[in-house]
Structure formats: C-alpha cells, structure tokens
Nucleic acid binder design. Structure first.
Lengths: 224, 224
DNA sequence: TTGTCGGCCGATCGCCGACAA
DNA sequence: TTGTCGGCGATCGGCCGACAA
C-alpha cells in the first residue's frame, strides 16, 4: 500500500513510528485491545512489572486486509531493556515532500443504500478529483480510481440537479456492494503528485470481522 | 446425514464398508488421489513394500461438506498386520429394510441457466414427488424439500405446457445460485418411507473446491 | 418425453430533479 | 451546499407455450 494512501485511510490522528526509531511499548494497552481469550493467559507477571518497554523498531509494514480493506500497521519491535537511548526524531516523514491531497467522507444512508449514488462534497470534487469540462451540459466524466489493492473502479462523475451538485452514479453501487459498505463507514479519496486518484475505506466500529487486523491496528495506535 | 440420502447422493456405484468389518487399504490408490504436494513425501518405502494393508474399520461417518454439499465418507482404520481374519459380510445393510425411492438427474444448460426452471423427468415426478391434484388446471403444488444439512427449500411444482410436463419454477433458481450448480452437476431427489422428500447434489468433476473432501471420498471409493 | 427458444410481464435497479435542512 | 424523497425509464429475472429432437 502506498504510504500516502495508507495514511489517508487510517486518518490524521494515527501516527506510525519510523524504522530504526525508538518507541515505548505499553503491554497493558496492547492487552486491553487484544481478544479476551488470548490476552490474559501469558506472562502477567512481566506485564504488571513493566508499565512500558523501550524498543527499537526494526520494521514497519503498512498493510491492508485483503478481505475487509481495513488498513493496519505491522511493527517488529526489539526490546532495548538495558539501554536508554534518547528517542530520535519521529516527526520527519521521508514521504512528506511529494504533495498529496485527500478528502474523507462518512457515508450517509443515501450514499450507502442501494439505488442511490454518492454525493461528492464540493471541496472533494474541487480539490481531489480531476476538474470537469463545464462547457458540456451537464458536465460529466468517467473516473478510474484504484483501491488499496491496485484494483481500478470506474465511476461516472456528473455535475447536475437544481441546485447543481457533484455526484457519482454508475459504478458506485457496485463498489458499495463489493466492499460491503454501510452508512457510517468512510471513504477516502486521495490524489497523488502525478494526479492519480485512489480510494480507501475506513469502517465504522461495528465490530471488526478479523481479529488480527484489529490487534495489529491497536498495536499501531498504542504508540505516539 | 441420513444414510439413505447420503447413498443417493454418492451414487449407486459407491460402496462403504460397515463398522467392525475388515477391509484392504490400498495406499497406492490413496496416494494417487491425494494432492501432489502432500502425497509423495511420507514413507515411500512402506507404501512400495505393502501393496495393501488389512485393516479393521473402527468408525464410519457419512458426512457432507458444509460449503460445497459434496458428500464424503470418513473412515477410521486400524491395521491388522500380524493377523489375517476372513472378511465379514459387508453386503448386509442395516438400513435396507426401510424403503426409499430416489431419482438422479444431470442438469441440462436449461436447468442450470438463470431465468430457467427445472424440467422434472416424468419418472421422478411419478415415483418420488407427492402426486399432484390433477383436478385443478394447471395442477400445481408447493414442495418443501430438505437438503443434506436439514435446510428446507421450497419449490413450486407445476404440470403445464403443450405437451404437458413437470416443472419446478419458483424457488428453483435460488437453489441453483445458492448451491452454485452448473450444467453437468446432478441433483438427487429421495423420498423416505414416511414420504419426506430430500434433495442432494453431486458435482461434476471440474475440480473440487475442497481438497479434504476429495481425499476422503477417494478413501471411500478405494474400498469395495 | 423433454431440451431450448422467444415472448412477455412484473420487479428491481438506478438516474433524475424537486425540495428542504 | 447536500441529504432524502418520489417519479420513472431501462434492465433483468423468471414464467409461459411453441416446437422440435
């Protein structure tokens, strides 16, 4: 998954440490996010005695679940128990220089219901999507937008109605049904520096379908 | 799965040994049916040196795959290497006394295509299905038919057209789609001694979707 | 006897502007 | 600006008899 797309899907509040940085691992927080069956069985002594563990981040993978499209981060940590190194800069992003624009919208019932299209917020159409040719009436174009797996989805983007508004019509309901989206889920549109548009989704917290993804996401959110 | 339904689905050619009987296990046959990756790795010496092994059947389970509906038998075998006991009677079926009637049909493209019903062969309608009330015109009834999992399927059974023929209309395509049936697959209708009608399916040999079921079925077919 | 076809009717899908929040 | 609604046209599912294999 492209890092910029991943970040847009995960949301602005999520911070992921860089490779080779140092972080503090909070076992208690990880335990509370894990499933009840697997969490309370191993090494309670260690967990209780160590509120946090200083670790070295040896790998960071930004991944997406093939089934649910949920994004999550997989971190490999190496404990640095005897040492105490000053944390290095986690702020600087190597991928900050290439500009991307993204827009996220929570799906309304009208967006998610079958038989409906998608109301594209004005700002999203203006800043993320390719601009329409307003000489035609109504202005209309077909967009090929790729998801986190690289699969391209084709949407008809039209500007119509009174008053005028941006809509996705043809292709939208197939996307909703295939991704099993419901009202309350979010979609994220991202335009990278070359003008390519991607789409990601973030599901509302009606419980996750895949425990591993939840645990891994919790792992990521535990750091800051 | 009820033994009679299981047998109708598996086909008349399939013979399954009884519990506590003695059978000969042919490792070579089992190997050839197993997947290439798992078959050629273990104990080739034993397999080559023993063309068949005399075994005691300690359990027989007639099962159906929850996803594909494919029926298969699971046998538990105990080798009787030092002994040679005369095989006991495998012919007598404890469940032979209760009479059942069954009919099997290979699905035509018209049966399997969407938008189509199912042509019920005359003999199947006469001998397996409850008889219609021919005073109404056209004669028509709704049938509740259970599959191997005990799930009931409702079919509209009508006798119409010129010339007259038996058809399943409403409910049939839902069954075909849910079971993912295609032309060449078979359906089996069974009426037990109490008049209850069941339906089973047998898929054509475009390759099986679940390896375990194939191996187990091959295990069953290896005996005779 | 029964497999396939074209006709046809009704249900659903999905595009539309109206209107109001 | 944008969420929801009713209208309605196109498409599709699926029931039908005709006809031939």
């Amino acid at each position: 998954v492209h890092p910029k797309v991943w970040r847009a899907c995960a949301g602005a509040a999520v911070r992921i440490p860089k490779v080779d940085s140092r972080v503090y691992y909070f076992p208690q927080g990880h335990m509370e996010h894990a499933t009840p069956s697997s969490s309370h069985s191993h090494s309670p002594y260690l967990l209780k005695s160590l509120p946090f563990v200083h670790c070295h981040v040896s790998s960071v993978d930004l991944l997406a679940d093939p089934y649910s499209d949920e994004v999550f981060a997989k971190l490999t940590l190496t404990p640095l128990l005897p040492f105490r190194l000053p944390p290095i800069d986690n702020q600087h992003d190597a991928d900050r220089n290439d500009a991307v624009v993204s827009f996220s919208k929570v799906l309304t019932p009208s967006d998610a219901n079958n038989g409906g299209g998608f109301s594209v917020p004005r700002y999203c159409a203006d800043s993320v999507l390719p601009s329409l040719d307003f000489r035609s009436d109504p202005p209309c174009q077909y967009l090929s937008i790729t998801d986190v797996h690289g699969v391209a989805w084709r949407f008809r983007h039209i500007y119509r109605g009174t008053p005028r508004r941006h809509l996705f019509t043809t292709g939208w309901s197939k996307f909703v049904n295939h991704k099993k989206l419901v009202a309350g889920d979010s979609v994220v549109f991202v335009r990278d520096s070359e003008g390519m548009v991607s789409v990601g989704i973030r599901r509302t917290s009606r419980f996750a379908m895949k425990t591993e993804a939840v645990e891994a996401a919790a792992e990521g959110e535990g750091f800051s």
